[in-house]
Simulated scan of single mutants.
Amino acid sequence: MIGEQIVRLRSAAHLTQEQLAERAGISVDVIRRLEQGVRHSARLNTLTKIAAALGAELAVIIAPRTTFAPEPDRGIPAIREAITSSTVDQLGGLAETDADIDLKRLTASVDSAWHIWQRGEYSILGRLLPALIAEARHATRECAGDDQEHAFSLLATVFELAAGVTVMLGHEDLAWLSVERAVAASEQCGDEVTKASAVYWAAWILRRQGRYRDSLTAATRAAEIHEPRMTRATPAQLTVWGGLLVNAAGAAARDDRAVAATELLDFARTAAVRLGQDRVDRWSVFGPRLVAQSAVVNATELGDFETAVRLAADVEAVRSRVPATWESRYLLALAQAEVELGQDIPAVATLHQARLLTPEWIRYHRLARDLTAELNARIPAGRQPELDELTRHIQLA
């Protein structure tokens, strides 16, 4: 647990709770409550300050929010081999002379994998990725002209999916290698949307690794390069550009830069209005509901919990929908704000909704686990059946 790690590192550094709080520039009460287990979570910005004060990496303080699946994923070795192999016959055993190129079928397979990712079914996607990487890379070698560019676009998407799955399973080295491969593949095709999408994923991985300023820089630079003309922009261009801005705003919020987060999200909102509805494709997810949800998430990250709960009404006013995993990530942020405000019963209902939407996805998230533990400490067992169900579902001891 977070508190146990802080105690261990603080003791090793021969610091009192007061001294650590002073170094970190936070309240000693926060340190005390974390170490005593009264609180099971804190804002990432707070944890980053504690880690810096202790001379430790953030990952040492808090285990990744995505390493609590019920069982280790057995597909990781095959994914690792597929990502790191340099010849086609090493990639899942696919020899160049054994496979016919069918770009239409490969495109359909990649689209299917994308939808599996959006549903948060990582165990299924993990089994599919090795063969998809092999086939997409094989297609880039065997095709020519426009077909080859299309194959490279598909390969970039597959590597993006590999980055997503591996970071969710806690393998950050593989995630970063995958996203580097995605960027390299995108440079081999003439599609600007594919190039922007690869940078979007790189910025997202950086943000998950706690490298907020690097993430902000990457996303904003890409947004400047790929900014479309509003009157002529295609839906795909608006989607990936808006996604870059949302990503940048999220990085700014986690870096405690409220003004920058608000300004970037305002730019994104302009693109969302132009788009008219939420759009889901294999480059990005973006639209009015996503922007409204991002405002809630960012307010929570900034510690403005009352604003986060208030802004939730704006989300419900938008009728379009986003994929289940995006919906659940917003619900986790809302539940966190509700917990912080002492709104325990609404928080239980919010977490229950997230569990129903994404039963597998929620088991990978440390935040869901921490919030459930916090609520269990406040609400007696048996008082809220939905909380008891969630506790059993995520296998919280």
Rank of each mutant, 00 (worst) to 15 (best):
I26N: 09
E316I: 02
A308W: 03
D256W: 06
Q90I: 00
S215T: 02
T48K: 15
I124V: 13
A258H: 10
V158H: 04
D344R: 12
S294Y: 05
T84R: 15
V291I: 04
G382F: 05
M1Q: 11
S11L: 13
D89S: 14
T372H: 02
H14L: 10
D388R: 08
E81T: 15
A347T: 07
L206N: 11
E389K: 13
L44Q: 15
A203N: 09
V240H: 02
A163P: 03
C189V: 01
A271T: 12
S85D: 00
L47A: 09
R366K: 11
W204K: 15
I362N: 08
A24F: 06
T217R: 15
R310I: 00
A42S: 09
R105P: 07
I205A: 15
I101W: 06
Q19E: 13
G276V: 03
V315F: 06
T97V: 10
T358I: 00
L103H: 05
I62H: 13
R39M: 11
S178T: 00
V7H: 08
S112L: 06
I2R: 11
A397W: 11
S294F: 04
T84V: 07
A272I: 02
Y122G: 14
A308S: 09
A113E: 05
N376M: 15
K195M: 04
A69H: 14
N298M: 09
D256Q: 10
G276S: 07
Q19P: 03
V240T: 05
Q395L: 11
H150C: 07
I76A: 05
Y200L: 14
L34P: 02
G120V: 00
E71M: 12
Q17N: 10
A354S: 04
E35L: 09
D281M: 06
T16R: 14
A198K: 07
L91I: 15
D278G: 08
D255R: 00
G120F: 00
P359W: 03
E18V: 10
A252W: 03
V7N: 08
A253F: 01
T300E: 13
D388I: 05
T194G: 06
P72E: 05
V158L: 02
R32T: 02
E192M: 10
E71Y: 11
P235I: 06
L58C: 09
T84P: 12
L206I: 01
V199E: 08
S284L: 08
